[in-house]
Design a protein around this nucleic acid. Structure first.
Lengths: 216, 216, 216, 216
DNA sequence: CATGAATGAGAGTTCATTCAT
DNA sequence: GATGAATGAACTCTCATTCAT
């Protein structure tokens, strides 16, 4: 009686886009399927044509959200600049929030974290994805650091994995502080401090911080 | 004029203890008042004798949770050791999770963060408390760093506030990674890397990292 | 684009019908949403598809209840008989409870009154509706009385508004007594007494009650 | 351990006074035992020392409320003035609300009516009391009317019981209208209209209304 | 006697999910 | 495929009532 040809993938992404937006505003728990359907401009029942249940939307959202983040660094990582410079560029990229693919959805992180650890029971799909995400980023940064150790710009006694975790952690951590207190927290400034301090801390040569940048 | 005498404060804390434990297990949203009452060994209605509603429990939980964390560093902060050493000690304290007052409730952080930002609408009590918490910790670390700048152990061109935010952020951030992947994430190791890298990065003297510690 | 088609208005009225019946039996306070849903033969949740909350059901019930009452007098009011006769007919209509559209729901009046005055705080929708109802009836009766004053059958020194209020009040008031003591209270008889007494009391000509009717 | 000698009757009345006041404000259903206890300045548990349960308070309240109303007419009823004058005086008494013993509790009537009819199931104590009340008042008025019939001031073909019911009903009924719309409803005026109209309607002699009073 | 802490039955309300159309 | 009406499990919160002190 009523048939329609639709690009399923495209529609699914439309729903997820709407979902992410709603989730960011209200959190997972307080976002209803109705909210999502309304935001996506479709009927409540239709959501279930594309997702088994609410949890599936959340899980899929993570993948979707992540994919958008990844793209940003691509250029830098591919480029042929030396490791030290790569790190510097990445910090600078983060520093300017205009480069953030989806600042408006940042608060989602908290929900993913919270949901992730509780998902242990139910197959842990989300948790697996999140760890995949963090692990791949740690590898990425670790690779850069190894590169820097090899070319002599970083000291030899670094555990690259740990250093990678540290960098990612620092960025995640200050994001938390910024989200909680956007008006008063100088995000860019702190990223610059991190950039300077970490590069100096990893440096092989005796640090001459003053020569390359000022901390404020 | 003679009625049952109960230490209301104590009982309230008992409920909060139970609540925190349940919250940590299931997250705020999936923890019911019933769960809390059962865990506290009291009736559902009794919970409402001590708290206006669920939100009040969450808010109070934060204060309770925080108070327990604060105590840990007290000793170090009061001690008369130089700034550099103070920082080192604090990192070491964090490094060993046996010193953590309530590791089992760590996942609560995620919920507090998530709940905090959404509480903006409803008076934002939680958000205010959380920012108070972070601000006071930033001040604490900033003071240590200023001290170090003054005694010549830290370089002069540091923005102490930013550096403080960086340190707290790094610790928060690696906590996230650890919570999500406890088995595989070497928390202590990363804290040591942070300690070494950050101290070196903040150092006034040209860094000679190898002389004082090894990163692995 | 193709969904179950339901006459929402009709279903809403079905729920209200069930609600009125339950309300009449138990009063507003002791009627639960479950009661209403069961009486309407639907699920509890479905009620909320049609009404925001219990108060909305009560408010809507009043309108629905009223609409059914209004119809009864229509005929008489439109008819071309003189004022005095109109009043007589209306009293006679009331006198025979077979003409009452919904005797079985009479006790609802008490709840509407009680609820109405307390609704002052919450927007007072119900109160407004009830006053609208009484005011329109007072106007109706006042118009008849004015008509009678003009055609010389009623004395000139009547305040029509007051007289209208009196008539409505008397009928309301004896309804109360009847509802409270159905077995022993002679409703029809009292209405006849009212008819006779009031008509005589309003009469322009020196009353010769005996000529037109007997009071018993 | 703690003993105190109290006039039980007096304290019970204190509770009922408080209860009536609260009931009038919020209605029976929305008044809690806590509200009553607080208003009475005693503990919640103490209420149960004097009343079996909430229903008992309501029932007792009615008796208490009624007793206060009854006193007002006493004087007139005992006085030796003729029937017609007696009625006139009673109407005038009602007309001036300053004479009302407890205008502020008038809305209670609605709740008593509502509660009364539903009390059928549970022994019907309240209903019995209310009917007793109405019956005794009807007798009172009926007696006056009989007296008037005997002394020739009222026509012979009156059913005194019915006329009594009519008078009480009219006063009850306009009270309803007034309570619902205090600002706009001219209570005293309507009572005067009732007085004049009813006295004229009951009059034995051909009515010469204009000679004795004006309706406005 | 007086009290208020404790309680659980039960009320209103929400919402993920189903399914007839 | 698309829809939204229908649903009941589940949740938060209230409150009459009990009872140890």
């Amino acid at each position: 009686m009523c048939a329609k040809v639709v690009d399923k993938k495209e529609k699914k992404d439309g729903i997820v886009t709407a979902a992410i937006s709603e989730f960011a505003k209200k959190g997972f728990a307080k976002t209803t399927i109705n909210d999502i359907a309304a935001a996506a401009g479709i009927g409540k029942g239709t959501v279930y044509e594309y997702f088994e249940n609410k949890e599936a939307i959340i899980n899929y959202s993570f993948g979707y959200f992540m994919r958008s983040l990844e793209l940003d660094m691509e250029e830098i990582l591919i480029s042929k600049v030396p490791a030290r410079e790569k790190l510097r560029q990445i910090f600078d990229l983060f520093s300017d929030m205009n480069n953030w693919s989806s600042v408006e959805f940042i608060e989602l992180w908290f929900d993913f974290w919270s949901e992730g650890i509780r998902s242990k029971s139910s197959k842990g799909v989300l948790l697996k994805d999140m760890n995949l995400f963090y692990r791949s980023y740690r590898e990425l940064f670790a690779a850069i650091i190894v590169e820097g150790m090899n070319n002599g710009s970083f000291r030899k006694n670094i555990n690259p994995e740990n250093a990678a975790a540290m960098i990612i952690g620092a960025l995640d951590g200050i994001m938390v502080q910024w989200v909680l207190d956007k008006e008063n927290f100088d995000f860019s400034g702190v990223v610059q401090t991190i950039k300077f301090t970490v590069l100096r801390g990893l440096s092989a040569a005796p640090a001459q911080g003053n020569s390359e940048a000022n901390d404020e």
